[in-house]
């Protein structure tokens, strides 16, 4: 099935949603929002993508490994950013004095908080996508069909 309305709408909606989610992610330490909200918005755009391309092109569908790697990668980024403080002889997740900070109020002013927020965003987006995939496609099929 090749639905033109779905395809055209998703071509506009999905990049706009992802841009808004990225804005909320990157400005998490300056304005309302942050890792959780931005990650959910990006995850919702992934869900929209996998919903739309269920009905159009099967070969472009998101695999279960994608959400798995997003989740694991987000946690790894968080832990690695935290361990840098220990390597420099301070506490876990130390920010000041280890990471370079900029002018207050600007985007590059927070040291590693931006990095940690991006990790949380990837984790939350992967989790939301994983929940949806497991609910719609995965799991046991007692009757052998969906």
């Amino acid at each position: 099935m090749n639905d033109m309305i779905l395809e055209m709408l998703s071509r506009i909606l999905i990049p706009a949603t992802q841009l808004f989610g990225a804005y909320i992610l990157f400005h998490g330490h300056l304005s309302p929002g942050g890792g959780f909200s931005g990650g959910t918005i990006i995850g919702a755009s992934f869900i929209l993508y996998s919903l739309v391309y269920r009905f159009t092109a099967q070969k472009h569908r998101l695999k279960h490994e994608t959400s798995l790697w997003l989740e694991v990668g987000g946690v790894l980024v968080y832990v690695m950013a935290g361990l840098v403080g220990i390597v420099f002889g301070r506490h876990f997740l130390t920010n000041q004095g280890v990471f370079p900070t900029g002018e207050p109020g600007r985007l590059w002013s927070s040291g590693m908080i931006l990095l940690v927020t991006l990790g949380i965003g990837a984790k939350v987006a992967g989790t939301v996508l994983k929940l949806f995939q497991e609910l719609l496609e995965g799991g046991a099929e007692p009757d052998g069909h969906h």
């Binding site: 942050g34 995850g43 919702a44 869900i47 949806f132």
Partner: peptide
Amino acid sequence: DVAITEAAIGAGATSL
């Protein structure tokens, strides 16, 4: 902050 999260989770992810 809560408003953004509610709009994303409540209206978006939970409905889906």
